[in-house]
Design a protein around this nucleic acid. Sequence first.
DNA 1: GGCGTTTAGGCGAACGTTCGCCTAACTCTC
DNA 2: GAGAGTTAGGCGAACGTTCGCCTAAACGCC
Lengths: 347, 347
Amino acid sequence: MTNKVTLKDVARHAGVSYQTVSKILRNQIQVTPEVRARVQQAVEELGYRPNITARSLRLQTSHLIGYSWKPAHERYINPILEEFEQSIVNAAERLGYHILLFPYHQGPDLYRPYEELVRSGRVDGFILSDLEFDDPRIAVLERLQVPLVAFGRAQSDGSPFPYVDVDGRAGIRLAVEHLLEQGHRRIAFLGWPEQSRVGTDRLAGYWEAMEAAGLPVDPAWVRHGAGQYDYGYEAAHILLDLPPERRPSAIVTVYDLIAVGAVQAIQERGLQVGRDVAVTGFDDTPLLSYLLPGLTTLRQPVWEIGQRVVQLLIRLFEGDRLTENELHVLLPPELIIRDSSRGYRPR
Amino acid sequence: MTNKVTLKDVARHAGVSYQTVSKILRNQIQVTPEVRARVQQAVEELGYRPNITARSLRLQTSHLIGYSWKPAHERYINPILEEFEQSIVNAAERLGYHILLFPYHQGPDLYRPYEELVRSGRVDGFILSDLEFDDPRIAVLERLQVPLVAFGRAQSDGSPFPYVDVDGRAGIRLAVEHLLEQGHRRIAFLGWPEQSRVGTDRLAGYWEAMEAAGLPVDPAWVRHGAGQYDYGYEAAHILLDLPPERRPSAIVTVYDLIAVGAVQAIQERGLQVGRDVAVTGFDDTPLLSYLLPGLTTLRQPVWEIGQRVVQLLIRLFEGDRLTENELHVLLPPELIIRDSSRGYRPR
DNA sequence: GGCGTTTAGGCGAACGTTCGCCTAACTCTC
DNA sequence: GAGAGTTAGGCGAACGTTCGCCTAAACGCC
């Protein structure tokens, strides 16, 4: 079953005390080359592997990181989460840690399971994703005084706890700037509900870019909604119903599926996406490329975020003193330009 | 950081020996109600939680299950894996276990990391998904003599190791039978490459259903291919190019994206999906419902599979003697009938 | 009331590490 | 060649549990 070869076995084989074997393997002692060789050989012959549990007990650290995320439900899937998961596993592995799955279920007794995991020494710290506004997990974990790093913020202007996040504001700014370069002047924005942290952040990017270009923004161009495909579809129809001089020639959205809905609405009116009305999305959702190959979108640096999150958490474990810039990291998304925002021909 | 309250603290507080506290908490001893109450109170006052690492060391079991899956790459995503992951976490949690992520990377030294995890006592056993034909992980783990349960088989007619799998053959049979009921007689099958384990299995279902209905199968109707969207698209065109009396009126596919490609090809020819040519997919891919709402497809009982996999693995841990039927479980998928296979009007 | 039996709870040991301290033996120096 | 310094490696203890064995007191019985 599990490893039966212990330090004592190796020691007996090599004719030294078992504590000495431990020290030799961890390079914490000087020995004659001859003894070292004997020990090495014994290790290999017996196939010794240190028992992680015993080490954890002695060292008072599990080398396990809890990962809490919000499971997708029925009609909602988060396309970037799988890549994030892979990334943190990858980074953790290289640093000698493993990732323990710990999905986040809303419910009355949120505290209990976290306390259990922490107080029982199961995990050394947590990685959180899918942060909500005023996320209850944060309070719980801070109360437990356990290190945590979040993928995402709780407030648009940053949060006190350590996080790594995508700079949605900069991303949307990139998208708007790109549309401006293409000659668009009336650019609409399909955002998320006004309370949404992510939505507010991205909307700010829109305002910044429009302002920097000195362009007035028609209030009708900025919309908020909670849905996905349907919301994009309906909102686009409303936008296209505006009188010609107010009708946007480009629609920036905060999510690919919203963009897909908008594309559908545009096409239904006999308009051509790109040439007549440009559309941009957000996330570069993998499956979409099959169905709507040409959607201009913003790709989050998910892999990089995962790597940073783990590195940051482990530095927290080690008790490093970290600067503001190390504790709060923002990474810009990459603008992927495709046909949905090319070939504009003003009419 | 981690729990500082130990059995000894509780014992001191309650005025008994610490071993007695342990026994009381595990109900392995009879004590006077008064002592039990004192201990209970001490536990609560101090917020004692047993240290999992120490327990693991003593009990020689980590209560951790390694989950190995094949990470999605660039253009390939497996839509059912997230649900599976959730399901095993859920089942494991309820049985006192946790899931450790351990992605499977093909490479020269496959053995090493598994050996490490097992011999060091990190995990008690493994769950494998995304099985390949003659999957190397199986050999490695069997050599290490570690319990394992797979989601999937390595051979169409079953595999020696414990597994839970979806009965693709029965699924395809359902789809074909449904099409027969709709009045279709010329039914084509877009499968996977001939070496594919899953593909062979599903193809068998097709043959069985056609044979049971006493219908001849035109060899041109059965196609094998490795792609997804493109493969479906091209294969459908080839099928529709057959002379009218040989041209299929229904296309069964082994994967939703292949079906989407086929739908595209059908529509390009001015034919209507469902009325003129029926199409069925496999997996009920979540995102697709936005883009092609009406695809008839087979939904794998992923949640159920996850639950069963964990239960089976834990019974393996416990050394139960299991019967053939318990070790090798097949669950049928559910046929979701939508518009792409309804309203057939023979011409 | 003496004997055997039950019961409550104590005690020692073990799981496999790591780490600090200790001590012989060796090396150097004058 | 004696004292001080260095070096190789041994030893005990600890991390926090669980478990088997032990014992003293309480109990039942005739």
